[in-house]
């Protein structure tokens, strides 16, 4: 029964990883940028939610309505102000600039909030659970998983069914020709980063309600998201959900065997999949 429980907890945790991965995958798909600061931005969103919910006395889930547009706006400004300047075709500038950004965010958070672990108070949600077949399932993890599925379905819809998604794919295919069609790539990239950070905001708030966080944990979240992307296969949004679930289950089972093995087990499964299927389980993109 413990094992069954661990697997279910792992699946639900996978939803969080999938949200982290989807934001990463989205911007890589549109502009071939890997954002090293992605994890730190998640933590930034969690701190923003913390501040907002303390100041306004609102539940973290309500604060979402505030933090999501804030992060989206920040993403757009960041892209147009700094990151567009790094997209010269060379892989070094975007990597090193987002790496610098990661250090800046981490230390700014440290300065503002100290290194003490914090947690978003989700009230009754924190402990509420339902019992199914003798296994107790927390309402919060369940909600987190449902939101993750909805976020990925939403991104999938935007990407393949809307004019914005068409613009994303056109710019990703050929920037010059897209520009001829009236699409300003700098603006399109800005919108892609805004969407990515909107997803980051959702992920950050659920992360903050589920576990405690401090300014240093961003790098670890980036790695989990990245592993979910690679496991699922590059360029496949639903693949990131599968990747997230596999990673979550691996960690959960590892932790069940030995608490020290939780994160390690996730990395090992990732490396195994990399060794056996280097392009991930459901690759879509060719590079």
């Amino acid at each position: 029964m413990d094992w069954m429980n661990a697997i279910i907890q792992g699946i639900l945790l996978g939803g969080l990883y999938a949200m982290i991965a989807a934001g990463l995958s989205l911007i890589f798909g549109v502009m071939r940028l890997v954002n090293i600061a992605h994890g730190d931005l998640i933590i930034l969103a969690a701190y923003l939610a913390l501040t907002a919910s303390m100041l306004l006395g609102l539940h973290p889930l309500l604060v979402l309505l505030l933090v999501v547009p804030m992060m989206a706006l920040f993403g757009y400004v960041l892209q147009r102000g700094i990151l567009n300047g790094t997209l010269t075709g060379d892989i070094l500038p975007p990597l090193l600039v987002t790496f610098g950004l990661s250090v800046i965010i981490q230390n700014a958070l440290l300065e503002a909030y100290s290194a003490d672990p914090q947690k978003l108070d989700s009230g009754v949600l924190d402990t509420a659970s339902m019992t199914m077949g003798g296994i107790s399932i927390g309402i919060l993890p369940l909600l987190m998983f449902a939101v993750a599925v909805a976020v990925i379905a939403g991104l999938q819809f935007i990407f393949y069914r809307t004019a914005l998604g068409r613009a994303f794919r056109a710019v990703s295919d050929n920037q010059d020709i897209a520009q001829l069609m009236g699409l300003n790539r700098r603006h399109v990239f800005g919108l892609a980063m805004a969407l990515s950070l909107a997803v980051v905001a959702v992920a950050g708030i659920f992360l903050g309600m589920r576990t405690s966080f401090d300014p240093s944990v961003g790098g670890g979240r980036l790695i989990f998201g990245f592993e979910a992307v690679i496991i699922g296969g590059l360029g496949n949004l639903w693949g990131t959900l599968v990747g997230g679930v596999i990673l979550g289950v691996a960690q959960s089972i590892g932790g069940q065997i030995n608490p020290g093995w939780q994160v390690l087990a996730g990395h090992v499964v990732f490396l195994l999949i990399l060794a056996i299927k280097p392009r991930g389980l459901f690759p879509r993109m060719t590079d």
């Binding site: 004019a163 068409r166 794919r169 295919d173 897209a178 001829l180 699409l183 300003n184």
Partner: peptide, 29 residues
């Protein structure tokens, strides 16, 4: 993109369609 908004359109050499877009999406773009 600014030129295109002023009413000049180019059919580029070698067609250069967007491979990830369907025929209709290529037109709609």
């Amino acid at each position: 993109d600014e030129v295109s908004k002023r009413g000049i359109a180019l059919v580029p050499e070698g067609r250069q369609l967007f491979p990830s877009l369907s025929v209709e999406e290529n037109l709609l773009i």
